[in-house]
Design a binder for these strands. Sequence first.
DNA 1: GGCGCCTTGCTTAAGATTAA
DNA 2: TTAATCTTAAGCAAGGCGCC
Length: 307
Amino acid sequence: MKHPDLNLLIALDALLQEHSVSRAAARVGLSTPAMSHALARLRDQLGDPLLVRAGQRMVPTPRAADLQARVHALATEALGVLAPAPVTEIAKLDRMFRILSTDQLMTVIGPALDRKLRAAPNVSLHVMPPQRDDSVQLRDGTIDLSIGVYDYAPYSDLPTDLRIQQLFDDHYVCVVREDHPTVGSSLTLAQYAELDHVQVAVRGPPGGYVDDLLAKHGLKRRIARALPYFLAALQLISETDYVMTLSVTLVKRLAGKLPIKSVQPPRSLGLESYQVSQLWHPRNDRDPAHRWLRDSIAEAARQTIRR
DNA sequence: GGCGCCTTGCTTAAGATTAA
DNA sequence: TTAATCTTAAGCAAGGCGCC
């Protein structure tokens, strides 16, 4: 099926608005002959002269006069569809963003992010726990953005169709209750392995990175309690003799708010630092509102870590 | 006759189609 | 996939038409 040339719709609109080939040409950025050719094609296609000479002027035929309002509405709509997305006024933005993040990261950057988001009073934020594989929901559009640690499996081979931006570097520290009966300011590897552990297992069953490192030393720890939330885990730590290994930025953020103390993990364990990043689907790359959200998160992270 | 506007013929470039 | 060919639309130059 041969489709009509929709450029002719724009040309016809200009001709019916201007009642002049030369002015219509100037209006759409064509030469006069080019517009004249377009008028000839329109005449041929519609079987009507559309504009006819009346002295030095061109006047519309009844058919053209009848089409004028419809053509103008269609041309305006078409140009609107093809125009670049309007610049978003953040203060007037009315939208809900859905992001995946742990309570740990929201505790660290949440207050600073909230201050940023207040620039858009009608923006709301729905934070949900991370999934086994965040990329699924990023791809299908059910979430807008994911914040987390993506430099380990299953994300070490991050799909190339997703965008990632590093937010800040973090490393591990151990915490026990302030008046723990056996733990001082540091831990030996043997002591670390002997203690009962609390682990926050957000994405799946307990175990993982720390256990893999212990296994290299022929050691194994007992995970006495596995919880989905960091704050609940820390509350538990403050009232028991368990030990927990977690983000130093979270521990700093909560300093003085819980009766816990941070303890150097055993150096020989080989815990490495890691990067916290935000992840999104490229369909949102050029969405001004989404870009504003990403910039707000990045700036909130910078402000929080600078402290 | 001069001027302004539109049309027409020709050339060129870009995109589409077809064949190898 | 590439090259050749065809089609289409734009611009340039020139001519036609109507008015003053």
